[in-house]
Design a protein around this nucleic acid. Sequence first.
DNA 1: TAGCGTAATGAGAACAGTTTGCAACGAGGG
DNA 2: CCCTCGTTGCAAACTGTTCTCATTACGCTA
Lengths: 152, 152
Amino acid sequence: MISPASYRTHPSPFESDLRSDGKRMTPQRKKVLSLFEEIGSGIHLSAEEVHSKLTSSGEKVSLATIYRTLRLLVKMTFLNELDLSEGGNRFELLSHDHPDHHHLICIRCGRTEEFENNNVINAGKAAAKNFGFKLLESSLNVRALCPKCSNK
Amino acid sequence: MISPASYRTHPSPFESDLRSDGKRMTPQRKKVLSLFEEIGSGIHLSAEEVHSKLTSSGEKVSLATIYRTLRLLVKMTFLNELDLSEGGNRFELLSHDHPDHHHLICIRCGRTEEFENNNVINAGKAAAKNFGFKLLESSLNVRALCPKCSNK
DNA sequence: TAGCGTAATGAGAACAGTTTGCAACGAGGG
DNA sequence: CCCTCGTTGCAAACTGTTCTCATTACGCTA
């Protein structure tokens, strides 16, 4: 039997990445990341939404900290930043399983769907190679009208 | 010989499109559009840049008017609006000759290159069809580091 | 060509989203 | 358990964009 005291808090990848960079794990950072983990990848939240979701579940994190944490998480590649534009950037959990996914956005109601397509990824790679650029990520934004909005 | 007085100011497509919509041609609108025409398609300017280019060549147009005019020109499909993000949207002359072109952006220095790729267009079409969306436009943004910036 | 209705402009205030400065706090190594 | 230095909270500052409103001027009609 293992006594509670002997448990060693198995540091998450996030925590060890932080540490190795002289940074610290704080309750605020944990809260933000675990919110995204609970909610799952493929859902896009704005800074404001992260803030209100946390505060409405009793947590107290300042909005400025949310912004700082989101930037940090993006730099550490735990989150992905999307500029679907029209009122604030959005963030989503970066699933390393399916890296380059793209977005289909209804410009009227904001409904957003994701898809993947190897041709798109290859097009990005080819273009980067062509111009001697080093590719970071590519994202295809398809602006469209969803079924509900297109028959109004 | 045709006397100067007999010239009829041949209205530009822009001017006639405006008129047919109850809108008016103003010197400010002319200036903004001709700036883009001089500069050619494939160059992306922010509202601020349009403003400073005009004022520095002696023209006086208020920034608010620039914004209004840019929005108008986009709606009339003379300009294309890009959200390459990182500090302001950018606009470019919409060349109807090569419609769906995409952007390769250096995230460090902002250098932007364009390319075309039919696979990308088809991927957008396919995705829209798949979800029952009606496609409007699709744009692939490839974030990368240009040769100069990648070896620093 | 003058008169007129109304669209468009200029200037600055307002706005939303984001960032920053600074004093207080607290994570975690010694 | 203490001390250091990264982090937080708050409010003020910033940035890109839109709005308000008094004034100007485009372009139709007589």
